[in-house]
C-alpha cells in the first residue's frame, strides 16, 4: 500500500510538473508578442500620395504622423483609416488564424467635462465558425473572418460588456498626442491647436464565440448594439468614423 501511494504521488507529480511554468511562459510570450505588434504598427512608414507601395512612392512618412495630420483638420480619421487598417491586418496576420484582435484609439475626456468618450478609430477582427459533432470533441467548420469598424457607446460599456466576456486578453497600449485644430474665439480666422492625449490599444484573445451581454442587447452589430459595429466592405459601413 505504501508503494502504491508513493507511485500514485510520483505519477501525479510528473504529469503536473512544469504546468504552471509552461502557462507562465506562454503568457509572457504573448504579452511580448502583442507589445512588439503595437510598436511595429506605430513605427512603420506608409507611402504618401497615390502610391500603393513604399517602393514606388515618391514620399514616405511614419504612419503615426499621417494619422496625426489626418485627425488635425476635422477630428476624424478618414484619409488614412484604410491605410491604418491595412497595417494592423498585415502585422497581426501571423496570429489571426488562432486569435481575434481589436485595435483602437481612444481619447479619455477630462474629469468633470461634459464631453463623452471619443473613439477615434476601432478595428475589430473576429473569426466566426460553427461547431460540428457531439460530445466533448467537436470540429470547427465554416470559419469566416469578419472585420468591423466600431464605435462603442462609451469606454465603460466597452469594458463591461465586451472585455470582461471574452476570456484572457493580451494587451498593449501607448499614448499619442493628437493635434486638434480649433477656431480661436477671438476675432479673425485664427486657429489654435489643442493636444488631447489619446491612447492606442491593441488587444488579442483566443478565438471563440461572440459573447452575449446580460442585458439582451446585441454586442457587435445593430443600431442598439453596445459596440455599434459595421462589417467592413458592406454598404452599411460609413466611410468615416463617427465622433460624438
Amino acid at each position: 500500500m505504501i508503494v502504491s501511494v508513493l507511485s500514485v504521488f510520483l505519477l501525479i507529480s510528473s504529469t503536473q510538473y512544469g504546468f504552471l511554468v509552461t502557462k507562465q511562459l506562454d503568457k509572457q510570450y504573448f504579452a511580448e508578442y502583442i507589445d512588439s505588434s503595437l510598436k511595429t504598427i506605430m513605427y512603420v512608414t506608409v507611402p504618401r500620395g497615390d502610391s500603393a507601395s513604399i517602393s514606388d512612392a515618391k514620399e514616405v512618412d511614419y504612419l503615426i504622423t499621417a494619422i496625426k495630420e489626418d485627425y488635425a483638420d476635422d477630428s476624424m480619421l478618414d484619409d488614412y483609416r484604410e491605410t491604418l487598417t491595412s497595417v494592423v491586418k498585415g502585422v497581426m496576420a501571423p496570429q489571426s488564424d488562432v486569435f481575434n484582435y481589436v485595435f483602437y484609439i481612444h481619447i479619455e475626456p477630462d474629469p468633470g467635462s461634459a464631453v463623452t468618450d471619443e473613439f477615434v478609430y476601432m478595428y475589430l477582427k473576429w473569426t466566426k465558425y460553427a461547431l460540428e459533432g457531439e460530445g466533448r470533441y467537436k470540429t470547427v467548420s465554416d470559419a469566416q473572418r469578419v472585420e468591423y469598424y466600431c464605435n462603442p457607446v462609451s469606454m465603460d460599456d466597452f469594458t463591461n460588456n465586451f472585455l470582461v466576456n471574452i476570456g484572457d486578453i493580451f494587451q498593449s497600449s501607448t499614448t499619442i498626442k493628437l493635434p486638434k485644430l480649433t477656431q480661436s474665439r477671438s476675432a479673425g480666422s485664427h486657429f489654435e491647436t489643442e493636444w488631447p492625449v489619446a491612447t492606442a490599444y491593441l488587444l488579442m484573445w483566443h478565438s471563440g464565440e461572440v459573447p452575449e451581454p446580460n442585458d439582451g442587447l446585441p454586442l457587435l452589430e445593430g443600431d442598439n448594439s453596445h459596440l455599434r459595429c459595421c462589417v467592413i466592405g458592406t454598404s452599411d459601413c460609413p466611410p468615416v468614423s463617427i465622433t460624438p
Partner: peptide, 27 residues
C-alpha cells in the same frame, strides 16, 4: 509486483521531469 510498479513509475517520472527540463532550457 509493487517493486516493479514503483520502479516503473519512478523511471517514467524521471523521463517526464527530464523532458520538461529540456523544454524549459530551450525556452
Amino acid at each position: 509486483f509493487a517493486l516493479v510498479l514503483f520502479f516503473g513509475v519512478f523511471s517514467y517520472s524521471l523521463n517526464e521531469f527530464d523532458r520538461h527540463n529540456t523544454v524549459f532550457d530551450r525556452s
